[in-house]
């Protein structure tokens, strides 16, 4: 791996926190949205976009300083970037490394494109999708109306 070189090229190391690497190029901001990190939040966040990568051609990297993000939240990233890897950093060292795994269901992350779906009404309801994978393609099925969506990143809340 050449991530040390790539990393130093793009952004400085963090002392402790979470590094999300191998994000599909251009999806870094969507990753932050999925993690609920919005403008005005208190986290220190470093973003690198379109970093050259041997494996992916181009990739994005997100580093969140001082915060270990939970597994469940991180797995949501798999919806838009199935190859993403997670490094938990402690005292500038990687203390844990893992890949994201597709969750079987997600709530409140995707919106249903079906205008007649109960999730798009005034009812007190959170969207809920079942995630299905067949080979390389991932689709989400609305728990309520059954509508299938394929390009998941278009439907992130």
């Amino acid at each position: 791996m050449d991530s040390a070189k790539e990393g130093s090229l793009a952004v400085s190391k963090i002392k402790c926190g979470t590094v999300i690497d191998h994000i599909n190029a251009g999806k870094a901001l969507l990753v932050l949205r999925i993690l609920g990190i919005k403008p005005g939040c208190s986290e220190r966040v470093l973003i690198a976009m379109n970093v050259p990568s041997k494996k992916m051609g181009k990739k994005d990297i997100v580093k969140v300083e001082g915060k270990y993000i939970g597994e469940k939240e991180l797995d949501r990233i798999a919806l838009i970037s199935p190859n993403a890897t997670i490094n938990l950093i402690d005292e500038y060292e990687v203390s844990e490394k893992r890949r994201v795994e597709l969750p079987s269901t997600v709530e409140g992350i995707l919106t249903c494109p079906n205008k007649n779906c109960i999730t798009n009404s005034k009812e007190p309801i959170k969207s809920k999708f079942h995630i299905r994978r067949s080979g390389e393609s991932v689709r989400a099925v609305c728990h309520y109306c059954g509508r299938k969506i394929y390009e998941l990143d278009k439907y992130v809340v």
Binding site: N114, N116, C117, I118, T119, S121, E123, I125, C142, H143, Y144, C145, G146, R147
Partner: peptide
């Protein structure tokens, strides 16, 4: 109900 998914909800 006219909305899809209303019964499950």
């Amino acid at each position: 109900h006219p909305l899809e998914g209303a019964a499950r909800f």
